[in-house]
Write a protein that binds this DNA or RNA. Structure first.
Lengths: 344, 344
DNA sequence: CTCGCATCTTGTAACGTTTCAATAGATTGC
DNA sequence: GCAATCTATTGAAACGTTACAAGATGCGAG
């Protein structure tokens, strides 16, 4: 366990100054160093296993080569929401992109009074990716720091924040309209409790758009809420069975919920799609691994992650402002029954 | 976008020295500061939104309050293996524990020539959690740095590294023996390509133990390999169908593979468990969300993550060496058919 | 022989924090 | 009334790096 070499040690070993050592190791193009010296320095660095300390660098140029990712967490346990595979798929893409661009990724949930703005400052984060919707106070605080921020899936209008989103409202429309095209007229909606903002709210608006367009009256009693989790949706199935208004189809605003709901329904003795048609949202890998495979609104989750990372790093490096909206489309699988055939 | 306040600014604002400011803000117990001064300092810090810079701290006390987590990645794309839900569940627990203990988490895959030892040095990681088995050169390098390392699921004997594991061999025995108890005599084994080490190798040994104990001859042709991924195992189903030696049961060394395999089989027209009984391993949340629900060897993935985080942080703070082996048990679900009844 | 100009190299300050040892001032003991 | 002790505060050094401005050295031209 030898003491870790500093640039001073390398300089001494190579017999040159610290400055020269730094120049060689950083390949500064505006300074000329003789090949001989450069060789000596590199050999010394190699021999001593020299690895520069980021913390020292950070102090000087205020850059940490660190990107932060803030992920929502489930209510009670303060764990990241990895029970929703969406987050894993997203984060995986972010990490990969970030690493390929020469940065590292710091991942954090948002504890009770953990404000990510101070994480950003404390760690001198170069940029930060925030998934989901959060209290505005911290966002304002973040804005004041001047760090590039990418908001993913947040419906926040502000010229400062970069955004990566999808058209959730249109997605909601797509899902609902698909059911309508398959002959369904009584269609339920299941999502997280509506709070007047956020992606589920938007998907709900899309649901209503489709209903309105088809001349179907909206029935408040067909709207159900559960947590964005498998088990909560599983349990909702029982409630649904009791209170059901005779719906033949349901649009569930997240695949993980759709799956829980479907399995909950099956536990109640129902068959899908025979007894109820279900359309999900996200096209999480789960959606095509279960039975029946879930018909859902596809979004490219990995691309979302890649874009978020690309935008934040581009912003760090050249300050370009970007807002991206990724495409959405229905992928037809087996959880919807076509009931138009019955009428012929 | 005001300039960020440093401790100097706080000191000036409070009208005291930098040293005093530092003492107040760090609540040093061995130095006495008058209440009045302390109040002034805190007010100033508050007013200026002062957040200490970790990088400066790190330079002094060589502690970064940062824990690293190294996750394997799928072969070609250099993405983290989040298509296997195991990693998400694990990481979520790690992140939570780490955060609650006042640290942050840096997550990284292992790029082609990305050695995690230099990440550790560059970032002054206080500790590092490594999931899976890796080339030893980097581990040796890491050992030389003196940083606490927790190896999770790695079969490496070394007094330096802390470990968190399960008894994979016993797990393999449990799975196979369960099939034997249900009357199966011809039992296949599916895992990642065996490399002579690693968890799948151990699970394979357990498989052979159970076979041997029951007096069943081992048949090399009943061993199949696929990547640890859904799709690879899905595809394997076709090969299996062609080359099958009349097995009535199969032990698949990972749930994600088991699920892919089951669905692949179904795509080939087979029914599970009627045509083949399947036992998985891990008890990933997926295992109970699919159809049939998979009978599998349960391990507490979140506990694994929590323990890994706890051990590494304890090692940082008081240097205790620990090796933990978590328990394993079979959870019976619907992917195994009891064929003993037929004989009665 | 000296000036000017490349080419290569270096000393030093700075980044923001903690910590050691030292100081000043007040209080006590004799 | 002076030393000893305690309390509250501080100056300066150190951590490892980069970047600025300045210093050598060599060479060709006048």
């Amino acid at each position: 366990m030898r003491k870790r070499a500093s640039i001073k040690d390398v300089a001494r070993e190579a017999g040159v100054s610290v400055t020269t050592t730094s120049y060689v190791l950083n390949r500064k193009s505006n300074v000329r160093i003789s090949d001989e010296t450069a060789r000596k320095v590199r050999e010394a660095a190699n021999k001593l296993n020299y690895v520069p300390r980021m913390s020292a660098r950070t102090m000087i140029n205020q850059k940490s080569q660190l990107i932060g990712a803030i992920i929502p967490q489930t209510g009670s346990s303060h764990r990241l929401m990895f029970d929703n595979p969406f987050y894993g798929e997203f984060l995986s893409a972010v990490e990969c992109e970030v690493r390929e661009r020469g940065y590292h990724l710091l991942v954090s949930g948002t504890g009770p009074n953990q404000d990510y703005s101070s994480i950003a400052q404390m760690r001198d984060l170069d940029g930060i990716i925030i998934l989901g919707t959060y209290p505005c106070e911290y966002l304002d605080e973040l804005k004041r720091t001047g760090i590039p921020v990418v908001l993913v899936d947040a419906y926040i209008r502000d010229h400062y924040f970069h955004t990566v989103s999808i058209d959730d409202r249109h997605g909601g429309y797509l899902a609902t309209n698909y059911l309508i095209e398959k002959g369904h007229r009584k269609i339920a909606f299941i999502a997280e409790k509506l709070r007047g903002y956020g992606i589920h709210e938007q998907r709900f608006l899309g649901y209503r758009d489709a209903l309105a367009e088809a001349g179907i009256d909206f029935d408040e009693r067909s709207v159900y809420a559960a947590d964005v989790s498998y088990y909560s949706s599983f349990q909702l199935a029982q409630v649904f069975k009791e209170k059901s208004q005779g719906e033949t189809g349901v649009f569930v605003a997240a695949d993980i919920m759709a799956l829980g709901f479907i399995n909950g329904l099956r536990a109640q003795g129902w068959s899908i799609p025979e007894d109820l048609s279900v359309v999900g949202f996200d096209d999480v890998f789960l959606a095509s691994m279960c039975l029946p495979e879930i018909t859902t609104v596809h979004q490219d989750i990995a691309e979302k992650g890649r874009q978020a990372a690309d935008i934040v790093i581009s912003a760090v490096e050249n300050g370009a402002k970007r807002d991206i909206i990724l495409p959405l489309y229905i992928v037809e699988r087996d959880s919807v029954r076509d009931i138009t055939v019955r009428e012929e």
